[in-house]
Design a protein around this nucleic acid. Sequence first.
DNA 1: AAGAATGTTATGTA
DNA 2: CTACATAACATTCT
Length: 241
Amino acid sequence: MHASSPQGRFATGASLLDGDRLVRADAWGKYLFVNFSGGQTLHVHLGLIGKFRDRGPDPGEPTGAIRLRLRNDGGCWDLSGPTRCELIERHERRTIESHLGADPLRRRPDVASARQRVAGMRTPIGAVLLDQTVIAGLGNIYRAEILFLCGIHPLRPSRALTDDEFAAIWDESGRLLRIGVRTGRIVTTDPGEIGVSRSAMRASDTLYVYHRQHCRRCGSEIETVQLAGRPMQFCPVCQPQ
DNA sequence: AAGAATGTTATGTA
DNA sequence: CTACATAACATTCT
């Protein structure tokens, strides 16, 4: 796999050659790092609208606003709309990673420090779950679904959570993210409860509360609060104050 | 066919 | 600490 930058989005003062081969790619939360044989590290963050598209083995010229193309004999991926797409130095990567909290999908996440941070915050837990410096990797959909599954009201002050409640949040985070990686979409509902296999699920069956009018479990009217600047849905019956 | 919505975050201000 | 306000991105769906 090698990379090219059709519209010159890479940081100045560094270059990625067509011949450089991808050595290793790994992610921490929503940040992707890709090492190339020339020693450079590519850093990509998709932001709200960024997307990698699979263009197959015979992609032709890039169409639209493509910022990066990753290509080898077997296939091709085009990137559009990222908030970050740049070559960085080792120390820059360390700086980014030093601002990131425990990632449930990484090998040795620092759960203890995440627990400690949460224990010291008066901020509502619904807002804290979006804070990437505490737990890295959750977004607006996951935070709503995780608190639903744990039966926790989003406005609970973080420091009021018990150890068991924090453990439940952490466990659900890992479980749901792994399902997401495996299936390529966010599915938080239990196939048994819904009565549909995970693969046969329709879009309206995949979530309990996010962007819903009624709770997928009990049918109650869903409520919305603004937390960390973004709307968050919850079920007032399944998540009592 | 214009306009909204979208799986987000770094940075600056009070 | 905490709490907002803001800008930037590109495609898809109404």
